[in-house]
Each structure stands twice: as structure tokens, then as C-alpha cells.
Amino acid sequence: MLARRIIPCLDVRDGRVVKGVQFRNHEDVGDILELAMRYRDEGADELVFYDITASVDDRTVSPEWISLISSEIDIPFCVAGGIDSVEAAGARLSAGADKISVNSPALARPELIDELVAAFGTQCIVSGIDSFFDGKVYRVKSHTGDPDKMRETGREMLDWAKEVIERGVGEIVLNCMNQDGVRQGYDIPQLSALRKVCPVPLIASGGAGAPEHFRDVFKKANVDGALAASVFHKSIIAIPDLKRNLKESGIEVRL
């Protein structure tokens, strides 16, 4: 049976891993390679590296550190941040990234997704969506790496998700911004709404604070994977304990 994936997310800024709360006040949590190797050893199923300043500062994640990570890591990993062309994506895939996640550049120019899918296949193109609930609707934001540069896109989450699926992405990571870094649990209603219309793998992001949050998001929103950052970085939850806990709850995981 296909295992549900546990995915530590490493926000990278200036070559270090950082973590903020609701996308603000980032603090340093460690070295990229050291953390990546720790998670590999603890049984993470996949890693995501977000260069959170790449889009806002108009640069892209460096192939050099992707290559370094690829030489040490024997689990799949995805890189994101400012990738805005077939060339930029190709350089990162060649350096050893397994998947490319696009967010702000695809919102600015949605055809980018079609171009990437045509060049590399649907299986390695991921759409990252940052969604903020304003009390009425889920609004898609862009350039979320820096609060001062964050933008309204005028798009609603479900509409944008349907569009990226039509354009051929192989996976969606839905980051529920209200929940980010506050450890109160994943946004089950929002993820369930997307799950109903999402035929590609769906990854939940934002809000993990306790093992039961993971259990709930798998059981109630039926997502394929759950992404988390601070609970892993700060050793609030140990991945081996989490996986045993999920297994005992009847959720298929790779131990």
C-alpha cells in the first residue's frame, strides 16, 4: 500500500535554514545539509527546500547546494523559490532535485506551468499555493517570503488549484497561511475542499503542532502527505515517534 508521506520543510534564506511565524520574524534554525541529513536518518519520506527570499529578491535557488544535498541524501527532495523558466528548472533538476515547486512566478505567468510540464513531465512539477482565509474566502497570495513584499493575486484558492491541475502539475502543496507556524492543526475544511476536486497528490502544509494533527489531516482530509517545519526543527515531534503513532492509528506509513 502507498504510504502517507511525512515531509519536513526547510525554509532557506542566505544559505541557512530559518523559520518564521505566519511568514514573519524568521529565526535561524541551522545548517541546510546538517538538518537534511538528520531528517534523512530519522525516516523523513521527502524533503522540501524553499528559498523563501528567491522570488522577492529576484533570484533563484542555487544549483550548487542542490548538488551537495543530492550527493548526501537518498530520499527524494523538492526545491522551490523563484524558479521562473525552463532553464532555471532544468539546472536544478540536473543538479539532483527530484521535483520543482513553482508559486509566485506561475501566478505572474501561468503558462510557465505548461512549459515546465512539456519539458520535464508532470511527475516533477509541483504547484505551491499560499492561501489566506479572510473570513469569507480563501485568497491566493504571492511573494510570501517577505511580509513587506507580499501581494494579493485576486485569485481564489479553488479556482487557481483547478487551473494548475489543468495545466498539468503532478502535485499540489496547499499552504494554509492562517495556520502557518502556530501549531494549532492543519486547516481540515480547506484541505478537504481541495481534496474533492484534486486528482493529483495533495500535500497539507501549515499548522502541525502535535501528532494528532497529522492523524486528523490524513484521516479527515485524505491528503497524501503532510508537511511541517517548526515541530521538526525544534524537536517538538520526533519523526520516528510520529510515524509509530500514525501506524498505531491505522495510517499506512513507512517505518
Partner: peptide, 11 residues
């Protein structure tokens, strides 16, 4: 009725 592509760890 499972999501496609088949992506992840399987037995």
C-alpha cells in the same frame, strides 16, 4: 480512484 501520478513510497 486514487490520485495520479503514483507518487511516494510503496511496497
Amino acid at each position: 480512484d486514487l490520485p495520479s501520478p503514483h507518487m511516494g513510497w510503496n511496497q
